[in-house]
Design a protein around this nucleic acid. Structure first.
Lengths: 189, 189
DNA sequence: GTCTATAAGCAGATAGAC
DNA sequence: GTCTATCTGCTTATAGAC
C-alpha cells in the first residue's frame, strides 16, 4: 500500500536527520519512533534487522541529499573553482545561521561506525567516494589531467569534512571560508 | 596519597583512549571501569560530576598527546612544509597498520558533543585552536606574514581532521598522503 | 579514600493480538 | 500490515559499609 511506503520513508527521513545531527549512538529508536509518530512494531516490520538496517538506509538518503546539493552548484556555476568555493561558503553561512548539520556531512556517522559495523562503514565510504568523484569529474571536464583530478577530488572532500567539523565545533563558518579561500591555490588546470 | 593520583590518572588514560576510539556515547562507564580495574565508587569519588567531567579531562589529555606528537615533528624538521608533510604521512602509516585512532584526533568527540555539552565542545574547540596555532607559529617563525599564517594554520588543521576521517573510513592512509602532497601548493613563504 | 550493592531509567529487540 | 506489551541487558548514578 502507499501507506506502507510513506511509513517506511518517514522512518528513514526522521532517522537520517537525527543520525546526522546527534549521531548513531546518541539517537534511540524511541526518539525516532516518537518523531515519526509510529509504533515500535511498525519499525521492525519495515526494518527486520533493526537499527543497523535503518541506519544503512539513512546514510544512503543523507548521501543523496548531500550529493544533490553539490551537483546543483557544480552544474549552475561554470568555473569549477568558483562552484566549489560557492558550495563551501554556502555551508559556512548555514552553520553561522543554524549551528548544526543538515544534509551536510556524514563524518560523525562514519567515525562512529567504522570500527563496529562493516556495513555502515562501507556505506559511508561509498558516499565519500561519490562526492570525491563529483569534484574529480568536474575538474576533468574543465580540462584537468585525470590523475591529478582524482587526487584533488579526495583532497577537496577531506577539506570539506574537516572544515565542517571545525566550523561546527567553533560555532561559526570561518574555517570553511578559509578553506574555500585556498581552493584556487590547489586547482591549476 | 600517590595511589589516589595513580587511580585518577589511570581512569583518565583509559577513558581518553576509549573515547577517542569508540566515541563518547558508545563508551560506557562500566567498560572504563573494567579496563581500569577499579570499582564504580572510586570513579565517582574522583569525578563527582560523572561521565562529563571524566570526558573533559580525557579530551584535555588526548589534546596534550596530539600536540606533543606534532610539536616533536615541527621541532625536529627544519623546513615547516616538510615537517607538516612528515606528520601527515606518519599518521597515514599508523592508519595503514592499525586502522584505528590513537593520539590522533578528537573529531569524533567534537562532533558528538558540540550540540549537547557546552563544556566538552569548548574543550574540543580549545584543542583545535592550539593545534592550528602551532602550525601558524611555525610558519611565522619561517618568515610568513602573520595573517596568512593564521589562516593557513586553520586550513591545515581542517585538512588533517578531514584526512583522518576519510582515511579511517577507507581503512587506508591514502587520503592523508594526498593531502600531504598538496601542502607545498598552499605554503609559499 | 575504597569498594559493593543497588537504584531508576532507557536501550534494542521480540511475541503476539488485532 | 499495524500496534501494544514486555523482555533482557545495559546505562549513569547513588547510598552506605568498611
Amino acid at each position: 500500500m502507499s501507506n506502507k511506503v510513506n511509513t517506511k520513508e518517514k522512518f528513514i527521513e526522521t532517522a537520517s536527520r537525527l543520525f546526522e545531527l546527534k549521531g548513531y549512538n546518541a539517537t534511540g529508536l524511541n526518539e525516532i519512533l516518537a518523531e515519526s509518530g509510529a509504533p515500535k512494531g511498525s519499525l521492525y516490520y519495515h526494518f527486520p534487522k533493526g537499527k543497523e538496517q535503518l541506519a544503512l538506509e539513512s546514510i544512503n538518503l543523507a548521501g543523496e541529499k548531500i550529493k544533490a546539493n553539490l551537483q546543483k552548484n557544480l552544474e549552475s556555476i561554470k568555473d569549477p573553482v568558483e562552484a566549489i568555493i560557492f558550495n563551501m561558503e554556502h555551508l559556512a553561512q548555514v552553520i553561522d545561521n543554524e549551528q548544526k548539520t543538515r544534509d551536510m556531512s556524514i563524518s560523525l556517522l562514519a567515525l562512529e561506525t567504522y570500527l563496529t559495523s562493516e556495513v555502515l562503514r562501507g556505506a559511508c565510504e561509498e558516499v565519500f567516494m561519490t562526492l570525491e568523484n563529483m569534484y574529480s569529474e568536474r575538474l576533468i571536464e574543465a580540462g584537468m589531467n585525470r590523475e591529478k583530478a582524482y587526487e584533488l577530488g579526495c583532497v577537496i572532500g577531506a577539506m570539506m569534512e574537516g572544515g565542517i567539523t571545525l566550523s561546527l565545533t567553533k560555532k561559526n563558518g570561518n574555517p570553511l571560508r578559509l578553506i574555500a579561500k585556498q581552493i584556487p591555490n590547489l586547482i591549476s588546470i
